[in-house]
Amino acid sequence: MPMRSKGYANAHLQRKHAWRRAWIVFCTKTFALARWVWSVIIGRQMQRVRWQTVLWHCTALTITFVFVAPFFWVLTSSLRPLGLPPPRALEWAPQELAWTNYAEIFRIAPLGRQIGNSILVSTVGAALTLITASAAGFAMAQTPERPRRWLVMLTIGLLMTPSTAVWLPRYVLFSKLGLIDTYTVLVAPALMGTKPLYVLMFYWGFRRAPRELFESARLDGAGPFLSWRRIALPLARPTALAVVLLTFSHYWSDFVDPLLFLKSAERYTLAVGLRMLQQMAVTNWSLLLAAVVVMTVPVLLVYLAMQQFIRSDSEAPALFMLRSPTQNFPQKGNSVRPNYVA
């Protein structure tokens, strides 16, 4: 099946029209901006700007500043040249940008190796989670009423179980199995879908799909495997993408598991590598913050990618398990989809 052809038979025509649409949008926006600038110049207001809106924007900008300023400072401080004495007053931008800091951290610590390990663990973990969590979610959505309610309650109970409770016994279990200090330990949670929340997300995603689809597939002789693979998963593409991205950043940021279960330094992931770097260069903040930036950027990219469909497919509340799936989603005769998050 071709990727979303949107009614175009011809990929070339589709691309051409996409460019044409983008060009039209660009021209319209530019024209509107020019008209606005012109109206300001000749002193005629096109729209009355209400002072409440202005106040709202001021407040929101202040808050944005509070939330973003630390990361801006991290970025600029990571580029401060190494030899300089620490700044005496608040420094918005360094005098000169030392991009060599980023080369330096890769020289003094095996960051390349650790990034490789992190990418390996995160990718394998995300792929496995996609399979196990979606399978479990699909099976939960297909089971009859009463066992399903028990399964959902069980999953929510698992969600509530604190992660600190399982550090010790997992250590004992893994050392009994001889798995300590392997990559397997790090991706072991993928066996149960990494977090029960991801299973629940898939469950809600599949419950939203019309039941008739699965019933007719079943009447045509398709088993659960077939309808899971060929009908359910393609339907729940936004959920699947969200889960993959969330899982990727979960394994990328995971610190406790590698700390507890890994022994040899060549298997360390980036999170533990950051701790090692901290112990090596305690006072050298430029280097440390450069490593922080290296660790944070992939997660930020993943987050910005998620923005794209959090907007389109109101998944955001479902991320927090608190909203019933039947409440605000399109049912028969209700085709308007409310837009929660922007």
Binding site: A139, T161, P169, R170, L191, P196, P224, W228
Partner: peptide, 24 residues
């Protein structure tokens, strides 16, 4: 087959959460 699809999750949850919590 539904049980097979659900099995990895149930086995994993038992091994990695339920039994460890009880063992603690």
């Amino acid at each position: 087959e539904l049980g097979l699809l659900l099995a990895p999750f149930l086995v994993g949850a038992t091994l990695l959460i339920i039994l460890p919590a009880l063992y603690t």
